[in-house]
Write a protein that binds this DNA or RNA. Sequence first.
RNA 1: GCGCCCGUAGCUCAGUGGACAGAGCGGCGGACUUCUAAUCCGCGGGUCGGAGGUUCGAAUCCUCCCGGGCGCGCCA
Length: 510
Amino acid sequence: MQSRYSLASLTADPVSTLAEALGPDVELERPSEAVHGDYATNAALKLAGLRRMAPRELASELVALAESLPEVERAEVAGPGFVNLFLRDAWFADTLAVVLAEGDGFGGGSADPGARYQVEMVSANPTGPLHVAHARNAAYGDSVARLLEFAGNDVSREYYYNDSGGQMDRFRASVEAIRRGEEPPADGYRGDYVRELAAQIGDPVPEMLHRIEASLERFRIHFDSWERQSVVEQRLPELLPKLDTYEKDGALWARSSAYGDEEDRVLLRSGDRSPTYRAADVPYLVEKLDRGFDRAIYVLGADHHGTRNWYAAVARMLGYDPGRVEVLLYQLVHLTRGGEQARMSRRRGDIVFLDEFLDEIGVDAARWYLVNRGPDQTIEIDVDLAAERSQKNPVYYVQYAHARIAGILRNTDHATNDVSLAEPLAPEERELVKRLAELPAVLREATEHRGPQAIPAYAIRVADDFHRFYHEHRVLESEQEAFRLGLCRATQTVIARCLQLVGVEAPDRM
RNA sequence: GCGCCCGUAGCUCAGUGGACAGAGCGGCGGACUUCUAAUCCGCGGGUCGGAGGUUCGAAUCCUCCCGGGCGCGCCA
């Protein structure tokens, strides 16, 4: 195997480039212990069985290959067959040069070719203000959307709402009741916002939607389109005959259980034969796919998990590739206030509105907290703590690293990409470069797994490494100024990117 | 009863086959004549819910059990 490793072929991922030089099946990882080198691979352990060789023997071959690479200082076999690599300073300088050359694009563009995605999220019916559970939907869905965009896909965010169902009737009836000076019906809606809407004239729904949109814009989420159930439903008559359906108990049912769903679903109610909410899903899905989206993503709360297979079943029933339908579920949010737990249920009245939440802890902390946990994990946030201890919030720790760098860069006008080394690299410099080099892999994985929680975790590591570096080394007017300035600019770019992907601002001063 | 999710440090949680399991918060003790101390350094803290299994190797994959959350509407 002849190595043709060359940094002349600058890719956005220096680590992958190095790995490829060792063979197609080799993946490098960063060992937790420094004595295990800058990078290590378990390739020999994995391939030993296939090649019928002893792992350590195969590892020796990789070591020989690795040591022939100009960037490798030395390599060694360790343990059962790990290969540890120790890299020369030149690799770090070249890697930093790659990051700087890529600039804002570093870590992006991994989707090749890009595809067209629709991310439908929030989609709360406009019967009241958004609350914190909706905020998680928004924060999670929007970060997934941002990841997809940065990977090079075309992404459209859509908000879908029911403007014609029983819930909406009850909402309008509640407003009307107050306008007549009566109490809202027992199953109606109440609260200050209902009174405010009653004080205005006309249909309260559009005004409620405006308020929701304003909350979302404040939360830094912009929707490209808003879709109404009453509009979508109009195509139902032409689509019903194409579905696999049957009559039972006076209602029309979809035979969805034969297409991967858990159960059959009612499309037309017995009695007035009016369409159910599920029925509207059918023309809506057709519309999504016919509009040319390669993939339609639904972002749903875990309380909707019972219908997660319904959408793909509809696609199958109509002859579409079910792989074009993707349902993302996230668990619920519990808020604690003064030690007392409140569940996010509108029905119980324990409502904490999104706007109140933002008033208390700020947009940056709110977005950070809501995306900081994996979607499968229930989130618990102590609002008092989040607001009170905001100084110690990790989000400020990361922002501070960004602001510190901005402070350094304000004091210089050197802006070259020359990162030549004046002296041997310090451990803090090497660690930081390796950290920055992780970004492409971190984002690739976060995008593929729809797991934006990896971003804040990584951003903390970057800030960690930077603060340590900053503490140990002078940047301006040091012997190593050129390299260190480059390191600062690259770090700033990486942190800014991470924050952008989770919808958090990257301040130049704090 | 059935389905989905979760169970990792005192608390909140990272970690979807690799080396002695990590972070933040909380606790204790240190470091500013500097480009920002919203920072840094040190100390303490664990039967990865339990039991089997697969593997050279398991917090991670499989089976069963225990505990918690959420669903199982002709509501949305």
